[in-house]
Design a protein around this nucleic acid. Structure first.
Lengths: 213, 213
DNA sequence: CTGCGTGTAATGTAGCCGCAATCTTTGGCT
DNA sequence: AGCCAAAGATTGCGGCTACATTACACGCAG
């Protein structure tokens, strides 16, 4: 069954990983960044819904589709109420599963390296390149990381701690206005290139990128 | 059918509105803040999926569950791919519908982050932005917190202690009329921007926001 | 050695916000 | 009805501080 599914997904250029146990799935969910999780209820080491509950308790945001042979209405209700986002009873048409996966992915958090575009500014996380009005603009590493972090949530505040984490990852870099300095340099570039966006500060909170006034 | 559904929802303390046409639903979605939209495919003035497509094109974020008598797999695929988040074929168990609605609502933004709207004033807790009559109005941090706290319970009294807690969180700020001063400044802005709401004081208790007399 | 990236520190600046003084409103009391 | 005290409204002032900007130094790479 898993093999058939994987094959069907592969044929449609969907990237998928497969593990057999709850423990493995848990581990994968911890490290990997997946758009959707497909879960069977009957698994070698337990009940799939327990994993759903565990993930949700940890506030794990990944959309989950539960797949099962237990088709009764009450089973479906239990499944959904445990924190799953969709529930499909076997047997099912592969096309329906794929459509439901698409629906879930559409809603899920942005894929981590999708092209980011806002105003006349765009960012390619794969190549770390920034274009403004179609023209490539050089952004050194740290400045780039700030821009990318802001572009992941245009029009929304990105907190100072978030930005620092995005730029300095693990390295504990504290006690200076380095971030402010980067912001200032980025702003200068945005001005020179006549970008249609600006970085606004939100006192005591952080920054956000938005369309220029 | 709609009547039965409404009745079932009401019995479970779910607040629901019902309209019969696509046009009405569209209008409701524009102004109202709903957690989920339940949509039939066959409607007096057209095909429900067209509304889904229209809403999605406008980037309307509301989760949509499509309900229909057309139960074939390909119909379901079409429904999901048009931008709906779930698809349920009639006949269905009311319990399953309710569970799916819960799942959809769960996935939406947390209640605390939802867009707050009342009169021609709206507040976005994610960005800490306030718009009046569609226009962005600047509210500094403390004033913003007051507005947000009031907007969370429109037409209802928010006590002075509650407001102070909302604005000053942990910091122990006592002994002045700072809160009154903020209220005053907010009122001035509401006047200047011709807001349709006003802040009324309730002697010895607190304040409330309500439609202007 | 030279140039760029980046952290640091110094300096400048804006605007929030608390304070207090003054004025207005409210509600209770006789 | 009229008065008073207390609550609330309003306003200008000023200090504080987060943020902006700039210059500079260090380090690494070519």
């Amino acid at each position: 069954m898993a093999r058939a599914l994987l094959e069907a997904l592969r044929r449609r250029d969907v990237l998928a990983d497969h593990v057999r146990t709850i423990a493995d799935a848990d581990a994968m969910a911890r490290v990997g960044t997946y758009d959707v999780l497909v879960l069977d209820r009957r698994l070698p080491d337990g009940e799939g819904l327990d994993l759903v509950a565990a993930l949700r308790q940890r506030k794990h945001p990944v959309p989950i589709l539960v797949l099962t042979a237990l088709g009764g209405v009450d089973h479906r209700v239990d499944g959904l109420d445990s924190g799953a986002d969709d529930y499909l009873a076997k047997p099912f048409a592969i096309e329906e599963l794929l459509a439901r996966l698409r629906a879930l992915q559409r809603r899920g958090p942005a894929v981590s390296d999708r092209y980011l575009s806002f105003g006349n500014l765009s960012v390619d996380p794969r190549t770390n390149e920034v274009s403004i009005g179609g023209a490539l603009v050089e952004f050194p590493r740290r400045e780039y990381l700030v821009v990318e972090a802001l572009m992941r949530r245009p029009n929304r505040i990105v907190t100072r701690p978030n930005l620092i984490e995005a730029v300095y990852a693990l390295e504990d870099e504290i006690g200076s206005n380095a971030l402010d300095a980067h912001i200032s340099r980025i702003r200068k570039k945005l001005l020179l290139t006549e970008a249609s966006v600006e970085i606004r500060s939100v006192r005591n909170i952080g920054y956000l990128i938005r369309a220029k006034a």
